[in-house]
Write a protein that binds this DNA or RNA. Structure first.
Length: 675
DNA sequence: TATAATATAAACAACT
DNA sequence: TAGTTGTTTATATTAT
């Protein structure tokens, strides 16, 4: 009865279509997850679309107005950048004419310079000043320029903000949707501007044009999140909080840092009511910034250990605040005075939370993308795979929650998902996955399992290994190299998400394999019957030609992904003699640990990373033992008595190995104690 | 095409 | 009696 019902599910399961469906479902799920994750910060996530919509609803006049507003900013940026570039080239080659120009720029108000760089031609400075002087002047000028740039931005942003406010007021009578869309449009403009500003500053920084000293650097630059880490929208988000808002009263801080954000703007701009649920103040470190450990810039972590997370390199790391503090005490004082619990700090904290949310959303998106990529690649197994990524990482990445939930339907025994390091051939089971040709020869189960341990554990993907190899692996992973049937079951379910379903089918298969293959020896001990592996018999199954023959190599090359080729090849060679991992480097910690027991239980074997290594050579079993075990299978009753003494079937004594049947295999294993 | 390996299904017996 | 364990047979698929 059970079997029948289960078999029905199995039958339906193998359908490839379902598998694909499940995949897409997972992808969808991922997307949904992302959406869900972004629910809180959904505003940001939806911004692009919302912005587009809102733009669509804006009147042409408004659009034009904004564009006009932004045009000068762009121009100014371009000009300023050119100017700085010229200056830089001038620095690098003092004799250059450009340097003259740059030097001359020092004397010209930056604002003017930005507007009409071509008109600046005082080149006398270059002739008059020495290179060091020029450089000093240049730095000074750069700082000036930055300051002016920021002021310029600030003004533009204030203008935009004012317009936003007026729109808000004027639009009170308008349908809320339209108003919201307009606001979004405004916010988009603000974001763009801020992004522009940041990109510009970043560019300057990258070009080495701006090596701003902390004090010199105006907030924006220093507070810029790492470009590599943050998508462009993230910095803007932050900026949006800090700079744009800058209502008049806050805009100019005594420190001269223009970065300080204003709470009001922050809330209205970056955290629209819908998006940012009222972040109650309790979420804020009430006057105890220490609670705000999650800094948005990782730089804080580089600071001297023991220092305040918000204090590093002698300055306050509070977003937008680079106030210099001589020591921790001063910093604490500064913290309590400048960053106490108030609207501004609250808003900044909100921003920080949004930054984190954005990062999470980004992570979700990237994970989804990775899934899609993997699915896509699986669709075309013939295509060469670029690289095999570190399995654990990618697997984890692709499944943020660490789980790939089995498709709702029992379908999809083989989903398009593939462990990154796994060869297409080994997974090639497009359909019912009847054949796992590569399991024995091409991709050693031990290494693949080690590499993709997390993947199989979490992904509902049918492992590309035969039942026999899996059973063997399960048994060999145990210190005693013996397992009861139930323990084998448990290993299957523990190691493979796939085997958490259709239990009747695969369990039947396991039993069938145990009985069918001579390599599995049933031994009775006190606890009952346990199953062991007769490596000699197991290796017998190998077609002789496979051993190190060109065919093997050919198969492997054709079957393995390029990235995994090397590791798999090595592992294959290793497995032929040492079935289990013997190359620690290929293991990820988790799997390595799981396999660890194997390595230390062998009595006689010195290193014996894998006792099971007996594989190629009749390893662990002394002739007597071996014969006895075989006998056991045929005559279980007798066996158990002899076994009793040591560990039930304890680590077979590796003392003398049976006649190495697979000599051919052992070429890889020089030092192996074959006999 | 023949063969081997494998997967799956199922029947059956023994045991708990 | 039901469930588990173990064996065996049959059939289909795939690769060599």
């Amino acid at each position: 009865m059970m079997v029948e019902s289960a078999s029905e599910t199995i039958r339906s399961a193998p359908s490839g279509q379902n598998g694909v469906g499940s995949i897409s479902g997972q992808a969808d799920g991922g997307g949904g997850g992302a959406g869900a994750a972004g629910a809180g910060g959904g505003g940001a996530g939806r911004d692009p679309a919302a912005g587009a919509d809102s733009n669509g609803e804006m009147s042409p006049a408004e659009l034009l107005h904004f564009q006009q507003q932004q045009a000068p900013v762009l121009q100014a940026l371009q000009v300023a950048r050119q100017l700085l570039l010229q200056q830089a080239s001038g620095l690098s080659s003092p004799g250059n004419n450009d340097s003259k120009q740059s030097a001359s720029a020092v004397q010209v108000p930056v604002s003017v310079a930005m507007m009409s760089p071509q008109m600046l031609t005082p080149q006398q400075m270059q002739q008059i000043l020495s290179p060091p002087q020029l450089q000093a002047l240049l730095q000074q000028q750069q700082a000036l320029m930055l300051q002016q740039l920021q002021e310029y931005y600030k003004k533009q942003q204030e203008q935009l903000h004012l317009q936003l406010l007026t729109q808000q007021q004027a639009g009170k009578q308008q349908p809320k949707e339209a108003l919201g869309n307009k606001q979004l449009a405004f916010q988009q403009q603000l974001l763009q501007m801020q992004q522009l500003q940041q990109q510009h500053l970043l560019n300057l920084q990258r070009q080495g044009l701006v090596s701003l000293q902390p004090s010199q650097a105006s907030g924006p630059l220093q507070t810029l999140p790492q470009a590599a880490v943050c998508p462009t929208d993230l910095p803007q988000l932050w900026k949006g909080e800090g700079a744009p808002g800058q209502p008049a009263e806050d805009s100019v801080k005594q420190e001269g840092l223009d970065l300080t954000g204003s709470a009001t703007t922050a809330t209205s701009f970056a955290a629209p009511p819908k998006v940012s649920p009222p972040l109650s103040h309790h979420t804020l470190p009430n006057g105890q910034p220490t609670v705000l450990t999650p800094r948005r810039d990782s730089s804080s972590h580089e600071e001297t250990p023991g220092s305040h997370p918000l204090y590093g390199h002698g300055e306050c790391k509070w977003p937008g605040c680079e106030t210099l503090c001589e020591d921790l005490g001063q910093f604490i004082k500064h913290l309590n005075t400048e960053h106490a619990l108030d609207d501004r700090s609250t808003a900044q904290c909100r921003v920080q939370m949004q930054v984190v949310q954005q990062l999470e959303i980004q992570l979700a998106k990237e994970s989804e993308r990775l899934q899609a990529m993997m699915a896509h690649l699986h669709m075309r197994p013939s295509e060469p795979k670029p690289f095999s990524q570190p399995v654990t990482v990618s697997a984890a990445d692709s499944f943020p929650d660490g789980l790939v939930h089995p498709p709702t339907s029992a379908a999809a025994p083989v989903t398009p998902l593939r462990p990154p390091g796994l060869s297409s051939a080994s997974l090639h089971s497009g359909g019912p996955a009847r054949r796992r040709s590569s399991d024995k020869f091409c991709s050693p189960i031990s290494s693949e399992l080690a590499q993709n341990h997390e993947f199989y554990k979490n992904a509902d993907v049918r492992p590309p290994f035969t039942y026999a190899s899996l059973i063997r692996q399960a048994i060999l992973e145990t210190p005693d190299r013996q397992l009861t049937l139930n323990e084998i079951y448990n290993w299957f379910t523990r190691m493979f998400a796939y085997f958490r379903r259709n239990t009747a089918t695969w369990k039947n298969a396991v039993r069938h394999n145990l009985s069918l293959h001579k390599c599995f020896v049933r031994v009775e001990n006190v606890k009952g019957a346990v199953w062991t592996v007769d490596e000699r018999e197991y290796q017998k199954r190998r077609p002789p030609k496979m051993t190190g023959s060109p065919t093997l190599v050919k198969n492997m090359i054709s079957g393995l992904s390029y990235g995994a080729l090397n590791a798999s090849y090595q592992a294959a060679l290793a497995e032929s003699s040492f079935p289990l991992l013997n190359s620690p480097g290929m293991l990820n910690p988790g799997s390595a640990s799981s396999l660890l027991p194997l390595s230390h239980d062998e009595v006689g074997a010195p290193v014996e990373p894998l006792p099971s290594n007996g594989s190629s050579s009749p390893p662990r079993l002394s002739p007597s033992q071996y014969s006895h075990q075989v006998q056991v299978k045929e005559e279980p009753a007798e066996a158990e008595e002899d076994r009793r003494p040591g560990p039930p079937l304890g680590p077979p004594n590796p003392s003398t190995a049976g006649p190495p049947e697979d000599r051919d295999l052992e070429e890889e294993l020089p030092g192996e104690e074959l006999s």
